[in-house]
Write a protein that binds this DNA or RNA. Structure first.
Ligand SMILES: NC(=O)c1ccc[n+]([C@@H]2O[C@H](COP(=O)([O-])OP(=O)(O)OC[C@H]3O[C@@H](n4cnc5c(N)ncnc54)[C@H](O)[C@@H]3O)[C@@H](O)[C@H]2O)c1
Ligand SMILES: NC(=O)c1ccc[n+]([C@@H]2O[C@H](COP(=O)([O-])OP(=O)(O)OC[C@H]3O[C@@H](n4cnc5c(N)ncnc54)[C@H](O)[C@@H]3O)[C@@H](O)[C@H]2O)c1
Lengths: 200, 200
DNA sequence: ATTTTTTTGTTCCAAATTTCACAATAATTG
DNA sequence: CAATTATTGTGAAATTTGGAACAAAAAAAT
């Protein structure tokens, strides 16, 4: 299995590379990237080496080439579709975010139990959860965002897994029990905020 | 410096402990907590030992005592005030979230450059960024959430630091340059989602 | 009261991750 | 074109993190 941390660093490298490219650079050195992203130059080189990205000694790395390869790693050229379960605060914030479309990520639809959410006022169509199977199958969707309250997290997760979802971004503060081959990324906003109060 | 990961696990332990308490339990064993939170029992004991939390051999840990001590670690009994800079999608989602108030976290105010955001329709007062200093000083605020676009992240961060903020939750996809004594927690939603496409 | 069982607390061990160190080599300089 | 310099790529060392193992102690059983 691939190193999760390295994987997320690549997305930071990508942002940084685009920044350098906009500034007119064609090459970068490991320490340029490292400094901008907040890791050591050695870390950058190790990450690159792990995914087989090559630079030229003394000449550094070619930005275009790096971007192209990173794009391949994250399948940026294919369709990258995702659905959201739970169209409350978080679900709405995500579907209004422009940065996904700009980065080739399509939020196909939202799902909710509450009929009040099936309105036209959202950036994406919102359906009853009964329709999940249909939408997932029709679009061959493999990735989903769980943004339902804590008590519903595991239940929704089980549904998603049974419908063939392989990758989950989970906002509910629950440790999800999933089969081996399912990848879950956790975002626990309350913990991220609250842990700051330890220091302050 | 304290182990960041351990710190965040404590908040998960806390949630789990409350769950057990609601179910009528007064004691837990390390493996109960571990199973629920998704870590090993050894990890739980190690974490507890690191913060000086004591259990009784064969009797396990007293839930009330654990909760009380964890509450102290995160200063749950004092005022836990925070401000949000950037009242766009994320800023609004956060200020509408009930779970903060329920957990003794008060979002005192929001700040934005855009006057269209200074309306009464939000759950918290929203001011011009000019007012940041006044609000921070008056309430002795030490914790802030950055929810502005990428290009403004570092600038806002510098302002906050100069106004005495010590802990930052940063949603903008930038590596913030901060003095040693400032703690930053990063939430990069796009990376969390996009990294899933590596697998799917 | 003694033995057995169970669980903590901690030391030791293993795995994963990061940093160091340096040979290899490409670019630059003289 | 030889010497110098800068930077990559990677194997070894160091660090960090998590897991295993087990003695110590408390509870339960006999
Ligand atoms: N909003 C935040 O700032 C914030 C902060 C910390 C944690 N969270 C967590 O993120 C998650 C979402 O938060 P939110 O503020 O968006 O919640 P919310 O209550 O605003 O929205 C949840 C939505 O899920 C829907 N829902 C409930 N059960 C469902 C089910 N079984 N299937 C489909 N839809 C269902 C509800 O109808 C509602 O629309 C929660 O687990 C919350 O704990 C949110
Ligand atoms: N919304 C999402 O789902 C999402 C997903 C991934 C990343 N992000 C990141 O989170 C951050 C916030 O996202 P969003 O969708 O809420 O953005 P948004 O554009 O909806 O809101 C940003 C707000 O910040 C304000 N602002 C800009 N410069 C400011 C300044 N210097 N001082 C004060 N206010 C300022 C703007 O007026 C706007 O109201 C961004 O950095 C974005 O990249 C958001």
């Amino acid at each position: 299995m691939v190193n999760q941390k390295s994987l997320k660093r690549f997305l930071q490298y990508r942002l940084s590379l685009i920044k350098f490219q906009r500034l007119g650079f064609e090459k970068v050195f490991s320490y340029n990237l490292g400094k901008d992203v907040g890791v050591t130059a050695e870390q950058v080189r190790k990450d690159f080496s792990m995914f087989g990205l090559k630079g030229s000694k003394r000449g550094g790395y070619d930005i275009k080439y790096l971007l192209k390869t990173i794009d391949e790693i994250f399948k940026r050229n294919g369709e990258r579709q995702v659905i959201i379960i739970g169209m409350g605060n978080i679900g709405q914030a995500l579907c209004n975010y422009q940065g996904f479309k700009e980065n080739n990520i399509i939020i196909v639809a939202g799902f909710d139990l509450d009929p009040a959410k099936y309105s036209k006022k959202y950036a994406i169509p919102v359906h009853s959860t009964d329709k999940m199977e249909e939408v997932i199958k029709k679009n061959s969707i493999r990735t989903a965002i769980i943004a339902v309250p804590e008590f519903a997290g595991q239940e929704v997760c089980d549904q998603l897994v049974s419908l063939g979802i392989k990758g989950i971004l989970n906002f509910s503060p629950v440790n999800l029990k999933v089969p081996e081959d399912i990848v879950v990324n956790y975002v626990n906003l309350r913990n991220e905020l609250e842990s700051l109060f330890y220091y302050t």
